[in-house]
Computed example of a mutant assay.
Amino acid sequence: MKKVMITKAGGVDVLDVQDFPAPSPQRNEVVITTKACGINFADILARQGLYPDAPQLPTCVGYEFSGIVTQVGPSVDPSWKDKAVFGLTRFNGYADTICVPVDQIFEKPDSLTFEQAAAIPVNYLTAWQLLVVMGALTADDSVLIHNVGGGVGLAALEIAKHIGATTYGTASPGKHRFLVEKGLDHAIDYRSANWEDELKALTNGLGVELITDPIGGNHWRKSYRALRATGRLGMFGISAASDSSWQGKVKLLKTAVQMPFFHPVNLMNTNKAVFGVNMGRLWHENEKIRQWMMHIIDGVNEGWINPHVDCSFTFDQAAAAHQYIEDRKNKGKVVLTP
Rank of each mutant, 00 (worst) to 15 (best):
I159C: 04
E158I: 08
F178E: 14
L157H: 07
H162F: 09
S172H: 07
H162T: 08
D185H: 06
A156C: 04
K182H: 15
F178D: 13
A156Y: 07
G153H: 01
K175N: 14
T167E: 04
L179W: 09
E198H: 00
F178I: 11
L179P: 09
H176S: 07
D185V: 04
E196F: 02
A171S: 13
H176A: 10
E158V: 09
H186S: 11
L199H: 08
A193E: 11
S172V: 00
T170N: 14
T167Q: 03
L199T: 09
Y190C: 14
L154T: 13
K161M: 12
H162A: 12
E181A: 13
G151Y: 11
V152T: 13
A165T: 01
G164S: 15
S172Q: 08
T166S: 07
A165D: 03
K182L: 15
L199G: 09
Y190S: 12
H186N: 13
W195K: 08
S172I: 03
W195H: 13
D185F: 00
T170D: 15
H186G: 04
R191A: 10
D197I: 03
V180T: 15
A171V: 04
E196D: 07
I188H: 05
V152S: 10
E158G: 03
L154H: 03
V180A: 15
I159A: 06
L154W: 02
R191D: 11
D185Y: 02
T166Y: 01
G169S: 05
I163E: 10
G183P: 15
I159D: 10
V180E: 15
G151E: 10
N194V: 04
I159H: 06
G150K: 01
A187C: 02
S192F: 06
D189W: 08
R177C: 06
G150T: 01
K182S: 14
T167W: 01
V180Q: 15
K175R: 13
D189I: 03
A193Y: 03
A156L: 03
V152M: 13
S192Y: 05
H162E: 15
R177E: 15
S172G: 14
G174S: 10
K175A: 08
A156W: 05
A193F: 01
H186V: 14
K175F: 10
L154I: 12
G150W: 01
G153A: 01
L154K: 02
I188M: 08
Y168R: 07
R177V: 14
H186R: 09
I159S: 03
A155P: 12
K161Q: 14
D197V: 04
P173D: 04
A160I: 02
K175V: 07
N194P: 02
